[in-house]
């Protein structure tokens, strides 16, 4: 049986069309004109137990909407979700026992109370016996190291600590699947690395199925075996991460600042976006003493590009940028 199935999943939001002009608030309120916005369109996918799946796409692509339908928060306009065979809409309470959910921008911990109190409350809600609760906490301690801030009120925890607390809270009832919506958002590099280590361990050592949305390419590359990419509510890629990388290549932008003037060879003068003949790269941006070029590192090496650029003038400074993963996804599809 699949851990998670989405079958023809759709969500349409209906909003009133805002009116302009005088009394616009009142007129919008009574306006009959509605606009339907389709956030998720005929989405199909299946996740087997034990998989670690990245769910990615640009802002507004429908990731959060999909996740919320998977957890039973939103009701689909059409189609169906099954979590371990149950519909989150019809059997919400059964499903929330099987999944642990973390929204990176919110916390389900009790803000004003010491962290440990949240676990007492959750244990009571999920009807864990004291022995079960203790056993879970010992296991979670191994992975997430909570004791050091056990007695601190949640509002005083750092972002990384709070996320560890939230992960533990989502795992307390020993769910089969974890659903994480941007768990590393706003974290510094160290905290991100820690969270990733924890997630890897949960997947590999404890066999949890994990579905993760993120804007962080490193999260995806280091954790997920499989990625599902959605854009404008539709699935545009579902497969192994390696194949996605081949499709995207390794786009890189190289910025070179020149000490004085520089001269662009004939043929590439056309300006923005022009390919440099036989160079294997293209000019992205031109300024007075700076030029930015883009290349695909799987085709052209950075050193090759630099060698050519150094012939254009006297190089002062070089910066190599890897553009946002999201931008690339956006551009490619």
């Amino acid at each position: 049986m699949y851990m998670l199935e989405a079958i023809g999943l759709e969500k349409t939001f209906v909003t009133s069309v805002p009116r302009a002009g005088r009394f616009k608030a009142v007129r919008t309120l009574f306006s009959r004109e509605k606009r339907a916005v389709t956030a998720v369109k005929a989405l199909d996918f299946r996740v087997a137990p034990g998989e670690f799946v990245g769910f990615i796409g640009p802002n507004g692509a429908g990731k959060s909407t999909t996740i919320k339908m998977l957890c039973g928060i939103l009701h689909p306009s059409a189609g169906e979700v099954r979590v371990a065979g149950h519909s989150p809409q019809r059997d919400r309470r059964k499903v929330v026992r099987k999944i642990g959910v973390v929204f990176g921008q919110r916390t389900q911990l009790w803000w004003d109370l010491p962290l440990k109190d949240s676990f007492d409350i959750l244990a009571a809600m999920f009807r864990l016996s004291p022995a079960e609760k203790e056993r879970q906490l010992v296991r979670l301690e191994e992975v997430l190291r909570l004791r050091e801030f056990w007695d601190t009120p949640v509002r005083k925890l750092s972002l990384g600590q709070r996320m560890r607390g939230d992960l533990a809270a989502a795992l307390l009832h020993d769910p089969e699947m974890l659903v994480l919506d941007e768990p590393t958002i706003g974290m510094d590099v160290t905290a991100k690395r820690q969270i990733r280590t924890h997630l890897k361990l949960l997947n590999e050592a404890y066999g949890k199925t994990i579905l993760l949305t993120t804007h962080d390419m490193d999260d995806i590359e280091q954790l997920c075996q499989r990625v599902i990419v959605i854009s404008r509510g539709e699935r545009i890629y579902d497969g192994e991460i390696g194949q996605l990388r081949e499709r995207i290549g390794l786009p890189t932008v190289i910025r070179v600042a020149y000490r004085g003037d520089y001269r662009i060879p004939a043929g590439a003068e056309a300006g923005g976006g022009a390919d440099v003949p036989d160079g294997g790269f293209r000019i992205v941006e031109r300024r007075e003493r700076e030029v930015a070029v883009g290349c695909n590192r799987s085709e052209t090496g950075v050193m090759d590009v630099l060698r050519q650029l150094s012939q254009w003038g006297e190089v002062d400074d070089v910066r190599v940028e890897e553009p946002d993963f999201e931008d690339i996804i956006h551009r490619i599809y």
Binding site: C71, I73, R93, V96, F103, R106, Q108, F126
Partner: peptide, 12 residues
């Protein structure tokens, strides 16, 4: 959207 969190609890 506070209701989101409450919908994740195994309570009515």
């Amino acid at each position: 959207g506070t209701l989101d969190q409450l919908l994740l609890r195994p309570m009515p």
